[in-house]
């Protein structure tokens, strides 16, 4: 057994060395690595894959590596120096990152609107309202009849969850006292896709970014009930990480990505994205496209 055991281990090692060499050689063209931490909606829709391909074609020596996570963890990666640039959508936390000196600059590059999604029979009758009115109505109807009207929240401190809380703030209701304690208020603690599946199973209402909902639409019996309300504006921003403050980030490549996102080539990719797969655009470019209402 001894000899055979040794032989097995040697064979395994040889196979692994070969595999490793093959994978490293085939996978990576570029020698300069740009780590991009992004919110899930940009990756899940597939937009970033297209941007990556075009960016790497333009800068063949840069290898863009995308890590998709919620806005919360993406910013954390930036703070720890594990990402060179973050692409996120939560204005307050973005401004904090700039104030701390970790992010160099907010570069808004695209926007769309969150949708308020719900069952097609709309048990709380929110169609045609603005976002804050609709939230109050869902709460009132939910308190009265929690079996019929439910709101499914991400509850995960993501950018989408932050926007949801901002709408609750706009209603004047106390989020932790009045909303979170409600029997009708369900916190999934999961990503947008999973939350939509839960909303579908329970036939509840939820807030979703447009991209993720459109890619899930076919799997659910849910509908867009409210879109394009002022409070539903969702702006995506690129923030390079300051290499003077955080160890060893690749600020040059990060600046190149910002430049590319705001160039007419990058803005065109954003503008055209989604037509082929979803029959409609998912993002509006912020530099070349029309500005959203009340945009500061």
């Amino acid at each position: 057994m001894n000899r055979k055991f040794l032989a097995t281990i040697i064979i395994v090692i040889v196979v692994l060395l070969g595999l490793g060499a093959y994978l490293y050689a085939s996978g990576q063209g570029g020698n300069e690595v740009l780590v991009v931490a992004t919110t899930t909606s940009l990756e899940d829709t597939g937009l970033l894959e297209e941007i990556e391909a075009a960016f790497e074609a333009k800068y063949p020596n840069i290898d863009m590596q995308v890590i998709s996570a919620g806005t919360g963890i993406a910013i954390e990666y930036g703070k720890r120096g594990d990402a060179d640039i973050v692409l996120v959508h939560d204005r307050e936390r973005e401004e904090e990152l700039i104030a701390e000196g970790i992010g160099t600059e907010r570069n808004p590059f695209a926007y769309n609107y969150f949708y308020i999604i719900g069952p097609s029979d709309d048990p709380a009758q929110i169609r045609g309202m603005n976002a804050a009115e609709a939230f109050i109505k869902i709460k009132d109807e939910g308190e009265e009849n929690p079996d019929l009207v439910e709101f499914i929240s991400r509850g995960d401190d993501s950018g989408t969850h932050a926007s949801e809380k901002k709408i609750w703030d706009a209603t004047g209701l106390d989020y932790s006292k009045t909303i979170q304690t409600g029997k009708w208020y369900v916190e999934s603690g999961k990503g947008m896709g999973d939350t939509l599946m839960i909303a579908n199973e329970r036939q509840g209402y939820t807030l979703s970014d447009s991209g993720t909902f459109l890619s899930f639409k076919a799997e659910t019996q849910l509908e867009i009930l409210i879109s394009e309300s002022e409070e539903l504006l969702n702006v995506y921003t690129a923030i390079p990480i300051n290499s003077n403050l955080v160890p060893d980030t690749n600020i040059d490549a990060a600046d190149k990505l910002v430049e590319f996102l705001l160039s007419s080539e990058g803005q065109k990719i954003i503008e055209d994205f989604g037509i082929e797969e979803y029959g409609q655009t998912l993002f509006t470019p912020l530099k070349n496209g029309p500005k959203p209402i009340n945009y500061i």
Partner: peptide, 17 residues
């Protein structure tokens, strides 16, 4: 193309619907 394995692909594709 660098660290994606089968389980993480499953997780990504599920969140893509």
């Amino acid at each position: 193309g660098f660290t994606r394995v089968i389980t993480t692909t499953i997780s990504l594709e599920t969140s893509r619907g």
